[in-house]
Write a protein that binds this DNA or RNA. Structure first.
Lengths: 394, 394
DNA sequence: TTTGGCACTCGGGTCAGCCGAGTGCCAGAA
DNA sequence: TTCTGGCACTCGGCTGACCCGAGTGCCAAA
């Protein structure tokens, strides 16, 4: 598991990476690159390892060139040429040399030239290499960390925590931020409450250890007695309390049989509503912020912004997006590595967060492929950590 | 209360409307025009009333011209000229005549010419007149109504109702939709639940008659006994149940004194947390959908879209926006009539909804000033009605 | 008061030409 | 073998000239 994703098969015997099967679309690239990205980003490798087979001797410098191109392009948003490059970064070589390197890099598919007489811009593959090997995650500064901490500490509520987190993330990265509510399936039951609203109408309230509260109204087949309700409530809590939600159905399966026949149907109805809430993952919720940052996408953004906005409207798309996040480490998906087509011109940086070691949900950022990866990754990681702490405290 | 908003003071003795004080900005115009809009839109006036003083004899036709201009411009998004106008609408007069009328309309500030050699486009004032006197609210078709009904009926949850409503509205109008959750201040208490999470940690759950559920965690000064909790719960519900939230504080004010001294501090803490939840109107929540429709704004939308997106990010702005909605009838705010500057190039159509006659919250649509007012108003009204029904049923 | 006619305006599109950033290649130097 | 300076070449984008046509305003006549 140490290969570079999708190297162009054209120059044979040169870029001799142990390529995975070169599938047609994005999926394979993503699958391969994901863990790599996570590991390397976390370790903040800057390529001092014994240089790999897929990289020629000279590559030390070529990599610097690529890094410089990415940095400049991210900054200026304009194709960067050889001359400007040697001026801004002291590469110690002449523009002509850089041009040769650029030619190689282009041949290998890391950069690309919009027009013959223009500078180069990084390709998705170029960004990938940059993220995997050329960039360190930029840690937040102490004042920034303090600000994050302070901002999140004011939350009164799980809703509030999530809302603050997502706004914070959007503000820090100046991009679109997405935060998933702690998943029910990874939470434990803190309390189940049953309230009689009417003779045969019960409100079911679920409270999780992460502070999430879900409610459902249950129409029971017949009226439910107060004692039955109290009884059921007590037994439910005794059995399910502290347990993980997915385990609950099995634990309370036999409850109906312990009630009088007249009440069994009611109890069964309540339980099945409960299970539905647990199983149906449509209970996954998501919060979004920073859409206004989409306008900073670039000159041509009217074209790219629409599909992105559409994607953001679809909870399902966002959930799937976050769902693809690796459980451990940070996931970076660049451009076409994204499964959803509308996001092909964006990159997604996401990470799990949780109160302990376990990740209970994901959060992330969506921005143009041309984005400040080190900074974004730093912000995402920092925010995730702090949210985890906040959740653990409450 | 029957005047046209901000008529240009230039032609004196002609447009002899009883103008309000012509303030510098939008505020006065809005204040004046709002009730007018609501009344007239509701009554669907088409100007058969005895023609007003501010309109000359000829105006019957001039109004038709204005109406035609609005309709064409909304359709084509391009300045409309005299020739095209007579071709598309059979006005029974020649282009030259129409040109004369247009000159008058422009003089009076209803339409405007982007360039000397271009057609005309309506001004905010022109749209205002259109909405107030020239357009009928377009009712939904029977199949549309059925679809609305059907779509909303599937909701399981207040969250779900709101989510479905907002998406529906965005889809119907192809614009940005905003729905406010039923306001706490206009709801009654269905149930208050107190749960002991830890010895001195209580979860407070509020359930309203509109199905809204709010929770808060209360850290009490000392441990709370189970009996105290049950006692407090029972008394709270007895006193507050069925009452409007704003009335609750007064009704339970004296509760602490009926508890043992040791528990009083705890009870007071719980109650004050309860009050905070009720009073702080930051508990107003809002849901948004259809942001992707912003891309249909127009050619120049990169300029206009950013401030709009920013406005939509700010819950406060949206709440204020909806807050300005009249309690009865539909409110239409056009362009600069909107207080918030970022929305100066948009129009907002909003209306209250509620389970009975009372409106418990507002919903609306935000679109370009150049929008299909009759259709939008029809959709907004219809959706509001159905949501009201759904809420009444649950 | 309406209409046809007419001169006028001006935005937008097309085309040629220029400029300059940036390239690729090559021959010579290290 | 690798780097470098030089040089010819490309081509996107800007500028200015030009034209076209939609649309107007005005005027005189019906």
């Amino acid at each position: 598991m140490f290969d570079e994703p999708e190297s162009d098969p054209r120059p044979p015997g040169r870029a001799s990476a142990s390529d995975g099967p070169s599938g047609p679309k994005a999926a394979p690239a993503r699958a391969v690159s994901r863990p790599t990205a996570a590991q390397r980003a976390a370790a903040a490798v800057l390529a001092p390892e014994p240089s790999r087979l897929d990289v020629r001797q000279l590559d030390e410098r070529k990599l610097s060139v690529l890094r410089a191109i990415v940095q400049d392009y991210v900054g200026t948003e304009e194709p960067v040429g050889s001359k400007a490059l040697v001026e801004r970064h002291n590469l110690g070589v002449s523009p002509a040399t850089v041009r040769n390197d650029m030619a190689t890099l282009e041949e290998d598919g890391y950069i690309h030239q919009p027009h013959t007489s223009a500078g180069r811009i990084p390709t998705d593959k170029g960004y990938r290499l940059f993220v995997d090997r050329l960039a360190e995650v930029k840690p937040m500064s102490a004042p920034e960390r303090r600000a994050i901490r302070h901002f999140l500490d004011g939350a009164v509520d799980l809703d509030d925590v999530v809302a603050r987190t997502v706004r914070l993330l959007a503000q820090l990265t100046r991009q679109v931020a997405v935060v998933q509510y702690p998943s029910l399936t990874r939470s434990t039951v803190r309390h189940v409450e049953l309230l009689a609203l009417a003779p045969s109408k019960i409100m079911l309230v679920l409270i999780t250890n992460t502070g999430r509260v879900e409610q459902r109204i249950v129409d029971t087949p017949g009226p439910v007695g107060e004692t039955t309700l109290a009884d059921l409530r007590a037994r439910l809590n005794a059995r399910a309390g502290g347990r993980f939600f997915p385990d609950v159905p099995a634990l309370v399966e036999d409850l109906p049989s312990s009630f009088e026949p007249a009440e069994r149907a009611n109890v069964t109805t309540v339980l099945s509503t409960l299970f539905e809430s647990l199983v149906e993952q449509n209970e996954e919720r998501i919060m979004l912020a920073g859409t206004a940052n989409l306008t900073r996408f670039g000159h041509d953004f009217p074209l790219t912004i629409q599909p992105v906005l559409e994607a953001l409207e679809e909870q399902v798309v966002l959930l799937r997006l976050l769902g693809e996040t690796a459980d451990a480490g940070m996931t970076v998906r660049i451009g076409r590595e994204n499964e959803y087509e509308g996001l092909n011109s964006t990159s997604v940086v996401s990470v799990g967060y949780g109160s302990g070691d376990e990740s209970v949900a994901k959060l992330g950022v969506i921005g143009p492929t041309r984005m400040d990866y080190p900074g974004t990754m730093g912000a995402v990681r920092a925010v995730a950590r702090y949210v985890g702490q906040i959740l653990a405290e409450s």
